[in-house]
Structure formats: structure tokens, C-alpha cells
Computed example of a mutant assay.
Amino acid sequence: MKQFQPGDVIEVKLPGGFAYVQITHNHPAYPEVIRALPGYYKKPPENILELASGQSVFTVMLPLFSAIERGMLEGRKVTSTKVPSSDSTFPTFRIPIRDRQGNVVYWWFWDGEGLNYDANPDAGSENMPLREITTTDTFIERLSATAPC
């Protein structure tokens, strides 16, 4: 399986502009872990390295290299730079466990190696990404919803 490498910054073409993402991690059993960088640009920004040093908008798992290779979305590697320390640790993903009515009974948390659970997680867990492989359509929607620059 081909993948981008941690640190790679990818320009993703969107309707009417561009968004930028950075690969933070590769996992042997999952696709690339990607952090979305702020902004939706009509033309490429002048300093992509500065953009990549900033905060993440969201984090997802997506087989980005494969999606580009197969033409499911248009993108290209534009540079590679160090992943900021805020995103250098493998993220903890959350997984809802639901009852028959669809109510969340408890949450599993996965850190790339092991699982643990919590029936009453603190509010900080709401910001953790869901452990799912994002579709390209959802990925494009989420990137398109970032603030225009």
C-alpha cells in the first residue's frame, strides 16, 4: 500500500480553490492520519511552511495517496516539514458504543495501539476524532467548510 509520509503537506483542489493538509502518522493497519490546516484559498498561499506550523482544524484517517492516485480527488504533495509538537503524538480516536435505540452507552478510545473505555468521559473527549476511515466526499465537504482566505 502506497502512502504519503509523516510531514508531507498536500494541496487538495476544491471547487474554486485549495486546501492544505499534513500527514501526521502512518499506521500499519490503517490509512494515513491527516490534519487539516486552516483556510480555503483561492490561490496557493505564499508561505506553506508557516501554514503547516499552525493549529489543526480537524484530524481524520483517509487513504489520501490512494484517493489521489485513483482520481477520487485532485491533490499533490507540495512540501514536507516537521509535524508540530501539538500533533506529533498519535492522536486518540473515539468510538461510540450504542444500545439498540442508538444511544451512546460508553466510548472506546484508541491510541493506535490499545483500547480503553469510559462510560462518562470528560468534555475534552468531544474534540477527539472519530475512529473511522473518512470518505473522500466527507473529506472534501469538511475542507470546503474551513474559513476562506
Rank of each mutant, 00 (worst) to 15 (best):
residue 142 R to H: 11
residue 148 P to F: 09
residue 12 V to K: 03
residue 17 G to H: 02
residue 17 G to S: 10
residue 7 G to K: 05
residue 37 L to D: 00
residue 117 Y to E: 06
residue 11 E to R: 15
residue 111 D to W: 13
residue 69 E to N: 11
residue 123 A to P: 01
residue 99 D to K: 15
residue 62 L to V: 04
residue 63 P to N: 15
residue 132 E to R: 15
residue 58 F to T: 00
residue 26 N to A: 04
residue 137 D to Q: 15
residue 105 V to Q: 11
residue 71 G to K: 02
residue 125 S to C: 13
residue 132 E to Y: 06
residue 78 V to Y: 02
residue 107 W to G: 02
residue 142 R to M: 12
residue 84 P to H: 04
residue 46 E to A: 13
residue 20 Y to S: 00
residue 84 P to E: 01
residue 120 N to F: 10
residue 117 Y to L: 09
residue 103 N to K: 14
residue 19 A to M: 05
residue 89 T to Y: 07
residue 103 N to T: 05
residue 75 G to I: 03
residue 76 R to I: 07
residue 7 G to Y: 04
residue 14 L to H: 03
residue 4 F to D: 00
residue 100 R to I: 10
residue 54 G to N: 11
residue 112 G to K: 06
residue 60 V to A: 08
residue 44 P to F: 08
residue 94 R to A: 04
residue 6 P to T: 05
residue 86 S to Q: 12
residue 66 S to A: 13
residue 69 E to P: 01
residue 141 E to P: 02
residue 51 L to Q: 07
residue 144 S to E: 05
residue 126 E to A: 13
residue 64 L to D: 02
residue 77 K to C: 04
residue 64 L to R: 01
residue 42 K to V: 11
residue 50 E to Y: 10
residue 5 Q to W: 07
residue 147 A to P: 03
residue 91 P to K: 03
residue 23 I to D: 06
residue 13 K to D: 01
residue 56 S to Q: 12
residue 3 Q to T: 09
residue 35 R to I: 00
residue 72 M to A: 12
residue 76 R to P: 01
residue 92 T to I: 15
residue 108 W to V: 05
residue 20 Y to G: 00
residue 11 E to W: 08
residue 78 V to L: 05
residue 58 F to D: 00
residue 107 W to P: 01
residue 69 E to K: 12
residue 66 S to L: 12
residue 32 E to D: 04
residue 128 M to V: 05
residue 46 E to T: 09
residue 14 L to A: 03
residue 34 I to D: 00
residue 147 A to H: 14
residue 89 T to C: 05
residue 19 A to D: 00
residue 42 K to H: 14
residue 13 K to H: 09
residue 111 D to I: 07
residue 113 E to L: 13
residue 110 W to C: 03
residue 146 T to Y: 09
residue 2 K to F: 11
residue 122 D to C: 08
residue 92 T to K: 03
residue 8 D to S: 05
residue 103 N to A: 11
residue 123 A to H: 11
residue 46 E to W: 13
residue 121 P to R: 14
residue 121 P to S: 12
residue 108 W to I: 05
residue 108 W to Q: 12
residue 26 N to K: 07
residue 99 D to H: 14
residue 105 V to Y: 11
residue 76 R to F: 11
residue 58 F to R: 00
residue 147 A to F: 12
residue 64 L to E: 02
residue 4 F to N: 00
residue 114 G to Y: 14
residue 104 V to I: 14
residue 66 S to G: 08
residue 134 T to C: 09
residue 32 E to Y: 01
residue 56 S to K: 10
residue 137 D to W: 06
residue 78 V to W: 04
residue 14 L to I: 02
residue 104 V to W: 10
residue 89 T to D: 07
residue 81 T to Y: 06
